[in-house]
Structures are given as structure tokens and as C-alpha cells.
Simulated scan of single mutants.
Amino acid sequence: MHVQEWLDSVPAVAVYAVVGLVIGLESLGIPLPGEIILVSAALMSSHHTGINPVVLGACATAGAVIGDSIGYAIGRKGGRPLLAWLGRKFPKHFSEGHVATAERSFEKWGMWAVFFGRFVALLRIFAGPLAGVLHMPYWKFLIANVLGGICWAGGTTAVVYYVGIVAEDWLKRFSYLGLVVALLIGLTSVLILKRKTRKAQTGQREAEPAGTGD
């Protein structure tokens, strides 16, 4: 079966559900490739007549907002022991260095950290639980959470959808290659963000001893 035919056979409801669930779990604090899933689904919507990009964006937004809110509640109730437990379960994502970096961002920027954290892979996982641990007022968290979710999920869906429409003829001729390239672009963007985060953490750790010595 041709890839295009296989994609057209996937029920739209299943795509909406997978996108909302994966993004929700990622926002909850579980390291999952939410951004890659959203990019792939948005690309599908550009040449899959059954997938509505508006509904897709709405499901992605709902998953992000609901997942973050549940993460906030868990973090507020679990406190720092929760971060320690997550560090043991997911050492690559919830190490002491990652927690310290995210905590400094929240203490310095507050609501802006929640909003812009939606666009950064590491903070996207931390936002809900850490805001709860730090006892950020829920109404502030909710406003930043909703606005960030709409801008990230809606914006990503719209951009990828319209890019897919423009490249539709090319994708029809090279379906396999088009899908691989789309997934690679999403994966590369995540890896670049992780690399920048690690560099920032290294710079902060090197600067802290110097500041302490003064």
C-alpha cells in the first residue's frame, strides 16, 4: 500500500486522541515527543481530507492545558519529594542541574516562564509540576498556561499545515521521503533546544563558583 493511501486510512479521531494524549502526558511531566507528534499530525492534516487542522490544534491545546494543570496539582501536593522521585525515574530530564535551571527561570520570570516554557522542550515537561512545587498562584499559572498552549499548539499546527499545503505536490510524489524529512526536522529542533539548554546549564554552573568566591 502506498504511504499516502495508508495515511488516508487512519481515522481522524485516532489522530486527535493520540495528539491530545501524548501532549497531555508530556505536559504532565512524562518525557514524550509531543512536539514531533504534533508536527507529524499537522503535516498529515495538510493532505488528509478527514483531519481538520482546527480540531487538531484544539485537541493539542486541550492536552497541553489539561496536562499542565494536572502536573501543577501533583507538584503542589507532592512538593520537592516529587522532583526527587522524578529525578530517579528520569535522570536525563529531571537531574538536579535541570531542576535548578528550571527553578531559577520560574523564580526570575514567573508567568513568562510558564508561557515561553511551552516552546522549550525541557521547560515544557517541567512547567506544570514545578509551578505547583513553587506554589505559584493557580490563576497566574492558568492564564500563562492557556495562552502558551494556544500559541504553541495552534501556531505549530497552522505553520506546518500551510507549509504542507504548499508542498503537497512534492509530498505526493515523494511520500516516504517527505514524511522522513518532516520527522527529522521535528527531531532536530528538539535536539537543538536540548543542546542549548545543556550549554546554558554549563555556563551557569561555571559562573556560580566565581560569584560565590566574590
Rank of each mutant, 00 (worst) to 15 (best):
A210R: 15
R118I: 00
I185L: 14
H135D: 15
G203S: 14
W6V: 02
D8C: 04
T49Y: 14
S175F: 03
P209F: 06
C59A: 12
L123D: 15
I192S: 04
A100D: 11
G63I: 04
D68A: 06
I23W: 10
Y16W: 10
L183P: 01
L43F: 11
A64V: 03
S175R: 11
A12V: 01
L28S: 09
C59Q: 05
D169L: 06
V181P: 07
M44G: 07
I70W: 06
K140A: 02
L183A: 12
Y138Q: 08
Y161C: 04
M111A: 11
G186N: 09
T157H: 03
S27T: 10
G67T: 02
K140E: 11
L38F: 02
W139H: 14
V166N: 12
W170P: 03
V190R: 02
V120I: 13
L177K: 07
F126T: 04
Y72D: 13
G67D: 15
G186A: 15
F94V: 01
R118H: 13
R76G: 09
D68V: 02
D214I: 12
D169E: 14
L187Q: 08
I143Q: 06
I150S: 04
V99G: 00
G87V: 00
P209T: 05
G148W: 07
I143C: 07
E103N: 03
V65R: 08
L56A: 01
I74R: 08
R173V: 02
F141E: 07
H2E: 15
L83H: 07
A200N: 12
D68Q: 08
I37H: 02
H2P: 07
S105P: 00
L56T: 04
G164C: 11
N52Q: 04
A167S: 14
T61F: 05
Q4R: 07
V160S: 09
N52P: 01
R205H: 09
L56K: 03
L7E: 04
I51T: 00
H48T: 04
L83A: 03
N52A: 03
G211C: 10
A144H: 12
M136H: 11
G132Q: 13
H48N: 10
S46G: 04
I70K: 02
M44L: 14
G24N: 10
G149W: 09
P11H: 09
L134Q: 12
P53Q: 11
R88N: 07
Y16Q: 06
G57H: 07
T101E: 13
I23R: 12
Y72C: 08
S69G: 05
A182F: 00
S46D: 14
V180G: 05
L171I: 15
D68H: 02
A58D: 05
K199L: 08
L21C: 12
E5N: 13
T188N: 05
A144Y: 05
L28A: 06
G67Y: 08
L147F: 09
L28Q: 08
V99C: 02
W109P: 00
A73P: 00
L171W: 14
S189C: 10
L184P: 00
I125P: 01
K89T: 05
A58K: 00
V160N: 12
L184R: 14
G75L: 00
F126H: 09
R173A: 06
M136E: 11
W109H: 09
V114P: 03
S45N: 05
G110F: 06
A42Y: 04
R80N: 08
A17C: 09
R198W: 03
W152A: 00
N52V: 01
A60F: 04
